[in-house]
Simulated scan of single mutants.
Amino acid sequence: MIDLPKVPGGFLTILADPPWRFSNRTGKIAPEHKRLGRYATMSLDEIKKLPVNETTAPNAHLYLWVPNALLKEGLEVMASWGFRYISNIVWAKRRKDGGPDGRGVGFYFRNVTELLLFGVKGHMRTLAPGRRQVNMIETRKREHSRKPDEQYKLIEDCSPGPYLELFARYPQPNWICWGNEASEDIIPQGKQHKGYDGGEILNIPLRPNEQLNPDSAMALGEYLRKQYEAGKSIQELAAENQYSICRVRTLLAKANTPLRHRGRKQINEKSNRK
């Protein structure tokens, strides 16, 4: 039997990001794939049997992360923990320019969103700020499976404490954490890939063939220029922003960016061998 943390009267708000196990076990999909150095997963029955109902107050809120492909299973888990589904919050994963980040997985559609299901046990409304809160978080992606830090303030504004986070990976103030990677001295598993380091969104939505107005083109060009002058290559800028190399060059030109000589490294290497 798994023991969860307890507080007098029970927790009023639970946040959980279970290690869901997918039926498709390919390397790109399965979180536990050894080649990717990710976390171990749990079966649906194992997740449903967690004694969440015993550690929560008679009236409580649940925020449950669930992959789009496992929505049905997420609703089952919510019910087994003693909560009824009310609504959801959508995490929209954005590129630097504010457009959808299409680097997600999916066999039928390219996933650029993830769902945070909201459930209630007993009868407890959200706090006053929650009635003004829109049900969307828009941020850039970070390392594998990491959810946006903005979730904590949103939850604290909308639901009362004490707070418990299940399967926590990055401990937060005001929260009691539980999970294999909850300790501050443990580095969560999972590789951080280029372009997955979060950061600001420029809010200049741009479709593949869309023409920018001059002001927007200049703003985006200046942003790319800073990254280029900091040492990033045009190829890296193109990959991170999901632009073509031609588009990156055009935007850099708009910002009057002096370009480094192409192939200078190779030319220097040939000179040194002579």
Rank of each mutant, 00 (worst) to 15 (best):
E32R: 02
N88S: 08
K121M: 06
T113R: 01
M42W: 07
G9F: 10
R21M: 13
Q242L: 14
L212T: 01
D97Y: 03
D97F: 03
Q235I: 11
S244P: 09
R260E: 12
P5E: 05
E222A: 05
A182K: 06
A128V: 11
L117P: 00
G195F: 06
E54C: 06
W81I: 09
P129A: 13
A92L: 04
W65L: 11
E73Q: 12
F167I: 05
L44N: 14
E143V: 05
S183D: 14
A238C: 03
Y243D: 00
V66Y: 05
L117N: 02
P173A: 10
R264W: 15
W81R: 02
G9K: 11
S43E: 15
I186H: 07
A217P: 05
K232W: 07
T250S: 15
D97N: 13
V77G: 07
Q227L: 13
F83Q: 02
P8C: 03
A30H: 12
Y39R: 10
V248P: 00
T250L: 10
L12M: 15
E76R: 07
I176G: 00
Y243P: 01
E240G: 09
T257M: 11
L36Y: 13
L237V: 08
G190I: 00
K49W: 01
W81C: 10
R94C: 11
D197Y: 09
G195S: 08
K6R: 13
